[in-house]
Design a protein around this nucleic acid. Sequence first.
DNA 1: TACATTTGTAAGTGATTACTCACTTTTTTA
DNA 2: TAAAAAAGTGAGTAATCACTTACAAATGTA
Lengths: 175, 175
Amino acid sequence: MTSKKDLILETALKLFAQNGFSATSTSKIAKAAGVSEGLIFRHFENKEGLLHAILEMGRIKGMALFEGVTNFQKPEDQLKYILQIPFNIRKDELPFWKLLYALKWQSDNYDEEPSNQLKPIVIAIFSQLEYPKPELEAEFVLMLFDGMATAVLLKKIKKSKAIEDLILNKYNIHD
Amino acid sequence: MTSKKDLILETALKLFAQNGFSATSTSKIAKAAGVSEGLIFRHFENKEGLLHAILEMGRIKGMALFEGVTNFQKPEDQLKYILQIPFNIRKDELPFWKLLYALKWQSDNYDEEPSNQLKPIVIAIFSQLEYPKPELEAEFVLMLFDGMATAVLLKKIKKSKAIEDLILNKYNIHD
DNA sequence: TACATTTGTAAGTGATTACTCACTTTTTTA
DNA sequence: TAAAAAAGTGAGTAATCACTTACAAATGTA
């Protein structure tokens, strides 16, 4: 049985991802979750607190994703894993990632972008692969990563697998 | 002398880009522009109308940018021109592009994304360059384009010129 | 069981929201 | 120059905003 606190969290996440933070009122969240509006403030102090709870909840889930790279030894496999991340986002976690990517366009406060955590990892990979300028190549990959994630989250992609293969080919990684 | 209508337009653009559409009230716009709030509604009917006027104003400015590709004959030069667009955004047009990119995360209504207009052009280029799968390669370039634009608009880029050269090199285009 | 704590609600609060209206000032046109 | 049209204002409007408060129900603990 999910507690009402979790119910509020999940409902708010969906609505924030769908309509944006500012455009989603606490009364709408309460109504959608089937709880009284006051309960939101009992559990989360204020609307910002609710957002931070969602972000924290998701950040932990997200960390695990990036740590998955340690399952691979060879830098080629690690790079492959990272490049495939955007295409392997779980459907039920889509709202969270959409919210995260949308938030970075609103004020600088919410810039917990995946790329930030990912950067040192990617630099290390290109160093091992003996690229002449690992930092630069990493910056490029993260830009590409952003573009891929955007395409997936906004459902702009038709042949997901074909695009995935094309990208892997560019770095000479194959299935 | 700029008319008060244009003044409202420019002020709203800045505020929308800075804080988002929903988080920017008409009263704030009026105050920032130094006009009465009622004037906004005389000129633009409602808040949505104001947004649409901004989008239309910018769309025309943006079209010119994409048509610049016709100044080049060789497909290599055309591709180079397109890949450089995100790095050549004029400072005074930054708020507009930021707003445009932010809006596509809020509801599907505002998806006048640059990529959409750019896609057929890029496909044509890769066809001329005799790439085996022009549509796929175009889709890739547009994803990359999105990532580049995001990096530039959110000021996540340090060595802009270095990154620019790296990308051009990947497509065997040099200065 | 008794009492303390947590969880939950309903009805508020003042402030702010998008928008309207009655009116004046400025500009255009005949 | 006189009338018409357009531009602009300031004080409203009801609705909604984030948030509070007083109180009741449920739960934990001795």
